[in-house]
Design a protein around this nucleic acid. Structure first.
Length: 754
RNA sequence: GCGCCCUUAGCUCAGUGGUAGAGCGUUGCAUUCACAUUGCAAAGGCCGCUGGUUCGAUCCCAGCAGGGCGCACCA
């Protein structure tokens, strides 16, 4: 009857289809009527339904159990990180579903502003065109096309892993309903006075043409030069001499005995002239204020720094503290601007060389030494970040951060493992206002409409911050019919879009129908990698509190990172990534899940293929043990009520061990110690049930007196094991369950109670 | 700089205050009896180093060394 080998490829697609058709992934389909159907089936031939398998009153009275899927990017393709994100919550969901909870595993995809725009731009480049050729509207249409074609891929891949999410509720962060909630959130914050607009030096990617948050930066080691230059009475060290034209002060530490006496003085210093010929460097006098600021490290260089508020984030903050002017000398393309005369138009890297050369020639350069520098680069394209001042929208974080802090402090939200509470706290306590605007096209365009008249007046934002003119704008869900300011312009919508995280922060509720918002908020759990803790989890917490009045989930599960066997970060480009789809193909989805859970003991995982081998063998063991039990046990035994009692010493021993492993499994699932739970089940099934009891049963089955009792125990332990293992190995357990004599099987294993 | 984590069998990792376990690999034996993706057996470990607490430490404490990570900074 059953093949001697378990073949996942022949089973998984079919089983998944069975589940999807059942509708049980949708909590709305888990109520009593399904229960009735099952009862009809099991009682059709008379006799009472097997107690252990009788579905209990499901969702009707059941409690909710809701997991929010960590949003994969639409550009994403399944990798081990997703496997980690999704396997353990799926275990919980399946466990809770079987326990009678109304389970909702809420899936979706993130529009991933920069990432997606980047992918489509690359496509356009291949075609010899660009987004600028297309224009905004056509470009966005193009991205939507791309999304239609590829955006669902990642979700399909998750299905291959056996993820039992409610696909009927799958959302995309740019869906109209979702977008509407994003707009409402912006307007809500605006009404509270928490949104403001301001000039600020931000991390700017000259290639992507957008500002980036600190969390979107990556760092690269570079061998550069530390230049020691003369500035009036001082010598100071800098890696960026080309920004000297934007210097508006010199700073020393107020405790520094060497320089204390200069603080507050305005000094005259020689600097490079920016007029005349590039070939003939000349000097000119500049005046600079000396300030005292704690941010200056006395031990670095000479203890004096030049302050360039326009092109350095720390300097910008010093500038704010000391009311320094901001002089921009680098533009959005990463080139020197017209303020620097003869250096204008040069790329910063070229300007650096040229300025250094001119300083040598004019005697301003004291010395140069090699320097290992970590430069910030764009996480998308690797381009070196240029801090430049630009006009951005900010969200005040004070109150929101307070609320998010309190949520964890009062244990409304628990972070597992506990030691991640500290980075969470640290981030929130030292938080800066959130730069929520991005200068890209793909995303939620700000619901801000400017009067065109006023806009012109401030169109030049190249110069001093003090010259910025106020402007008039309306924040509204829809474009106003008439401009409330000039009464005749059609108003221009801000070209900026919101930071992608602004919209994903609303994930637990945005885009849900009003009914669902009532029914399925708040939820229970998110599970993700540690780097997402502040980027996403913290923001979901304060957004949930702000808009729904309750924390969105009780638990944050932080899982380890999957590394290569050598302990290196996996990288697709280096070909060192383990691809879950390949594992599914080679070993099966269950074996892949097994490998993930087996190894996910809390630490980072050095991925070892051996675990997938073990998983595959275990599935096969399960399969063959089931074969043995089915062929040696008459159909009616599977319908036996409840747990067999009494019997031989071996019977009693295995039943006792079954009870113990069931308790062990349940305890560890509840503690989120999935690996322990699985290992316990593995040992029990293989080494207790197969190695000991099944062998013993062969003798007992030959004994007429013991035959019946032995059959009952075999059937009972098998069915129980299938249930216990189902959350971990859903496909093979369901397939075996379907092969059991019909009346015992009833419907689907996924809703059979433990 | 602040903080977190790791160091146990060839490899990847569990684990406990009383002188160690799994998976994979290796070696030997066993194939009509559910499964060779199997069974049985075996080899293989100063449980990173030093000191302390203890009757006793792989486990607790301190220090050191090596490795990894997060945050901040990087003029």
């Amino acid at each position: 009857m059953l093949d001697t080998r378990y073949d996942p490829r022949a089973v998984e697609g079919k089983i998944y289809e069975l589940w999807e058709k059942s509708g049980y992934f949708n909590p709305d389909n888990l109520p009593a009527r399904k229960t009735k159907n099952l009862k009809l089936k099991t009682s059709a031939k008379g006799g009472s339904p097997p107690k252990a398998d009788a579905p209990r009153e499901h969702a009707s009275g059941g409690k909710n159990f809701i997991v929010y899927m960590p949003l994969p990017n639409v550009t994403g393709s399944l990798h081990m990180g997703h496997a980690l994100d999704n396997v353990t919550p799926d275990i919980l969901i399946r466990y809770k579903r079987m326990k009678g909870f109304r389970t909702l595993w809420l899936p979706g995809t993130d529009h991933a502003g920069i990432a997606t725009q980047y992918v489509v731009e690359k496509q356009l480049k291949k075609e010899g065109t660009s987004r600028f050729d297309l224009g905004r509207e056509k470009f966005i249409a193009r991205v939507w096309e791309w999304k239609k074609e590829y955006g669902g891929k990642i979700l399909e891949q998750l299905k291959k892993l056996g993820v039992s999410a409610d696909w009927s509720r799958a959302r995309f962060t740019m869906d109209p309903a979702y977008a509407a909630d994003v707009m409402k959130a912006f307007i809500h914050y605006h009404k509270k006075g928490w949104i403001y607009r301001g000039f600020r030096t931000v991390n700017w990617c000259p290639r992507c043409g957008t500002s980036l948050s600190e969390l979107e930066l990556e760092y690269r080691e570079e061998k550069t030069t530390l230049y020691y230059m003369k500035y009036g009475p001082f010598t100071l060290a800098t890696t960026r001499p080309e920004t000297k034209f934007g210097d508006t002060a010199l700073a020393v530490n107020p405790k520094d005995a060497r320089y204390k006496r200069y603080i507050g003085q305005t000094l005259e210093a020689d600097s490079l002239a920016t007029d005349g010929s590039l070939d003939v460097p000349r000097l000119k006098k500049v005046k600079l204020l000396v300030i005292g600021d704690e941010a200056v490290d006395m031990a670095f260089g000479t203890g004096v720094v030049k302050v360039t508020p326009a092109h350095d984030l720390v300097d910008f903050e010093m500038g704010v503290r000391h009311k320094l002017p901001t002089v921009q000398v680098i533009d959005e393309r990463g080139r020197m601007n017209e303020r620097v005369g003869k250096y204008a138009g040069m790329k910063t890297s070229d300007a650096r060389k040229k300025v250094a050369e001119d300083m040598r020639a004019t005697g301003l350069m004291v010395k140069e030494e090699p320097y290992d520098h970590r430069v910030a680069v764009c996480y998308r394209c690797g381009t070196i970040i240029e801090p430049i001042p630009s006009q951005q929208w900010f969200l005040k974080m004070e109150k929101l951060a307070e609320a998010a802090l309190a949520a964890v402090k009062t244990k409304k939200v628990t972070i597992t493992p506990k030691n991640f509470e500290r980075p969470y706290r640290d981030w929130l306590t030292s938080i800066r206002d959130w730069t929520i605007s991005r200068q890209i096209w793909w995303g939620h365009q700000l619901p801000v409409f400017f009067c065109r008249k006023k806009l012109e007046a401030i169109s030049n934002n190249q110069f001093l911050i003090s010259k910025q003119k106020g402007e008039r704008f309306v924040v509204a869900l829809e474009r106003p019919q008439t401009c409330p300011f000039c009464k005749h312009c059609d108003m221009e919508q801000s070209p900026d879009v919101l930071d992608t995280w602004f919209s994903s922060a609303l994930w637990p509720f945005a885009g849900l129908s009003e009914e669902d918002k009532k029914k399925y908020y708040p939820g229970d759990l998110v599970s993700n990698a540690r780097e997402i803790l502040n980027l996403w989890d913290a923001r979901m917490i304060f957004s949930g509190l702000e808009f729904m009045g309750k924390v969105p989930f009780k638990n944050i599960l932080i899982h380890g990172t999957v590394l290569t066997k050598e302990g290196k970060r996996m990288s697709k480009s280096l070909g060192t990534g383990a691809d879950p789809l390949e594992y599914i193909e080679q070993f099966g989805a269950d074996a892949t899940r097994f490998a993930v859970v087996w190894q996910a003991t809390g630490q980072d995982i050095r991925w070892d293929e051996a675990a997938a081998v073990a998983g595959k063998k275990f599935c096969n063991k399960l399969w063959n043990a089931a074969r043995f039990v089915i062929t040696h046990t008459p159909a009616e035994v599977f319908m036996a009520k409840a747990c067999p009692r009494g019997g031989t010493a071996a019977d009693k021993a295995i039943l006792k061990k079954l009870a113990a492993v069931a308790a062990h499994t349940e305890k560890h699932i509840q503690m989120f110690a999935f690996s322990k739970a699985l290992r316990g089940l593995y040992d029990f099934f293989w080494h207790e049930f197969c190695d000991v009891y099944v062998e013993q049963s062969k003798k007992q089955l030959a004994d007429v007196k013991l035959k019946k009792g032995t059959e009952a125990v075999l059937a009972h332990v098998l069915i129980s094991s299938l249930k216990l293992l189902h959350p971990f190995l859903p496909f093979v357990t369901e397939e075996i369950y379907q092969k059991l004599p019909r009346r015992a099987a009833g419907g689907l294993l996924i809703i059979v109670p433990w």
